[in-house]
């Protein structure tokens, strides 16, 4: 015992750190990762590997050599971006496309704003949308790749939402929801198993990493909105369960809309944010040109976050 340490109160600190929160997100993503690797096999493993490695490496290079700051890769946030980006891409994506996605996600969407905490848009989504617009064919190539589970092969061809977008309700009439819950028919890696994503959601809630407001309000909005439309005309509009279970809605609502940096602070703000995402998603799906609207909806609502933060604050003690 040498000299006494003196600092202002409080003198104790929670064990939760940025790194531990981000690590928890990675852990919550594991079920989805495992399912997608089992399902899509080696090619998915390559996409994941390239995505994570390039995100982490880029963050390291940019912080150390361009910004000349201590590296921030130890906070695990680049890993989260890498995993999310990979789960948003088809397993057939060539490695260079993944690399471009990582450059856009980390280089453009995250580090140009000043790194973790400063970015306006969700980096993984920006990367994904950039690829979607630049390489529309490759990004919607859902051909089956060889999985690790013999006997179960990924269904090839378009995603259910793609089918609906082109052929209307009839094109998807044969779909089995039970199938969707566990192993979806085609789609990006993160879409294939609802159960895997829900398991991650429960883990995040249990670890108090996220609050449920954003996710639940997206689900409720999508359910109610599509429910109304479906009741009005079931031959033109898809039903609520279909909309909840397909097209990355679960992945987006659990892991990307809840991203700390790009979502509102207060629970009330979170609800507004979630309702906005739900509405925009459904408008794009029903009336837009793209089959699935989750990515765009989240990005559009990301841009409203500062405004939401300003108008939807927590109730202050002893004030109206």
């Amino acid at each position: 015992m040498n000299k006494l340490l003196v600092s202002p109160s409080p003198h104790i600190h929670t064990k939760t750190s940025t790194a531990s929160l981000m690590r928890d997100v990675v852990i919550a993503l594991l079920p989805a990762v495992v399912v997608s690797v089992l399902f899509y096999g080696l090619s998915e493993l390559i996409v994941l590997g390239v995505s994570i490695a390039s995100c982490v490496l880029l963050e390291y290079l940019i912080t150390r050599y361009m910004l000349k700051r201590p590296s921030t890769i130890c906070d695990w946030s680049a890993v989260v971006t890498g995993v999310l980006l990979a789960l948003n891409l088809p397993a057939t994506s060539p490695w260079w496309m993944v690399l471009i996605g990582a450059v856009v996600a980390i280089g453009v969407a995250k580090m140009t704003f000043g790194g973790l905490g400063q970015n306006v848009f969700n980096p993984a989504l920006v990367g994904r949308v950039f690829l979607l617009i630049s390489f529309p064919v490759a990004m919607t190539d859902w051909s089956a790749t060889k999985g690790f589970i013999p006997g179960i092969d990924a269904a090839s061809g378009a995603t259910p939402l793609g089918l609906y977008s082109e052929g209307g309700v009839e094109a998807i009439s044969g779909m089995n929801y039970l199938h969707t819950l566990f192993l979806n028919i085609g789609g990006s890696a993160g879409e294939i198993s609802a159960i895997a994503i829900l398991a991650g959601f429960v883990y995040l809630l249990a670890r108090r990493v996220i609050r449920p407001h954003v996710t639940l309000s997206i689900w409720i909005t999508v359910f109610v909105f599509s429910g109304i439309m479906w009741l009005i005309d079931p031959s033109a509009y898809t039903d609520p369960c279909f909309n909840l279970l397909t097209g990355g809605l679960l992945l987006g609502s659990v892991f990307m809309a809840t991203d700390y940096v790009t979502s509102p602070m207060s629970p009330a703000g979170g609800i507004v944010f979630g309702v906005g995402i739900g509405l925009i998603t459904m408008l794009i799906r029903y009336f837009g040109a793209y089959p699935e609207g989750m990515s765009f909806a989240i990005l559009i609502m990301n841009s409203t976050v500062p405004l939401i933060n300003k108008f939807f604050k927590n109730k202050k003690f002893g004030r109206k």
């Binding site: 040498n2 000299k3 006494l4 340490l5 003196v6 600092s7 202002p8």
Partner: peptide, 22 residues
């Protein structure tokens, strides 16, 4: 000579508000 070690936010104002110094 230093008689104790300061471990708070590195700002003279914060430090001065806390105590007489290290």
């Amino acid at each position: 000579p230093r008689t104790n070690e300061y471990g708070g936010y590195s700002s003279c104002r914060v430090k001065a508000a806390l105590y007489s110094g290290d």
